[in-house]
């Protein structure tokens, strides 16, 4: 396994093609939980974990069930089902095994099931023909990229709470403008790695 390729995959998925800042996916959760640092951190941890596991499970199902039985045209429906089932399962398991963790992260788990990044990653994995390890690392990079976006945004929004923002732009509108400007800064990463 080429280690450099995997590292490039993680950097590409987290910085260069950051899901929030260059593909503009997952915005509902991004704006929803980036108001406070505490929720942003909780969401980031949960999100990255679910992302890696779902990338792995979807890859197994895609390669060993859907391709042999020529069901690839059903991949959107099947991936949605897989992600929803996975989120529900980890929700149940976590409640039994670690109630503390469940009360900390439980509310985000339900939100993740409706996130578009979580469905985009298995689709991109199958579209690009990544192997198992590559899919895992792509999921990890996407999760880290989303976490980075959330944490940056939360720190900026907490700072903006104190700012004398014109009334029509207070809150959500300014959050959109801020995201646009961060995306502008992130265009600097363009062309760093061409996979």
């Amino acid at each position: 396994m080429d280690f450099v390729k995997l590292l490039e995959l993680v950097i590409a998925a987290s910085l260069i093609n950051n899901f929030v800042f260059t593909r503009f996916l997952g915005l509902c959760i991004f704006f929803g939980v980036s108001k406070k640092m505490e929720t942003a951190v909780g969401m980031s941890i949960t999100f990255t974990m679910v992302m890696v596991v779902s990338a792995a499970v979807s890859w197994l199902i895609y390669t060993y069930l859907m391709v042999p039985y020529e069901l690839t045209f059903l991949k959107i429906i099947i991936f949605i089902g897989v992600v929803a089932a996975l989120v529900q399962a980890s929700d149940t398991v976590m409640r039994k095994i670690s109630p503390v963790l469940y009360y900390k992260l439980g509310v985000y788990l339900a939100l993740i099931a409706t996130n578009c990044i979580i469905i985009a990653v298995p689709l991109i994995n199958s579209g690009e023909g990544y192997n198992f390890i590559e899919s895992l690392f792509f999921g990890l990079g996407s999760g880290l990229g989303f976490s980075l976006a959330l944490i940056i945004m939360a720190s900026i929004r907490e700072k903006l709470e104190l700012a004398d923002v014109p009334a029509p732009f207070r809150g959500m509108p300014l959050a959109f403008v801020t995201t646009g400007l961060i995306a502008l800064a992130f265009t600097g990463f363009a062309g760093l790695i061409t996979l």
């Binding site: 900026i156 800064a185 265009t187 600097g188 990463f189 363009a190 062309g191 760093l192």
Partner: peptide, 24 residues
């Protein structure tokens, strides 16, 4: 950015990216 990126000069983007991280 200067050595590997798509742009010849990276000072502007570097400062802008770090502006995002300053509150953090």
């Amino acid at each position: 950015i200067r050595l590997k990126g798509g742009y010849p000069e990276g000072v502007m983007f570097a400062i802008l990216i770090m502006n995002c991280f300053a509150p953090l």
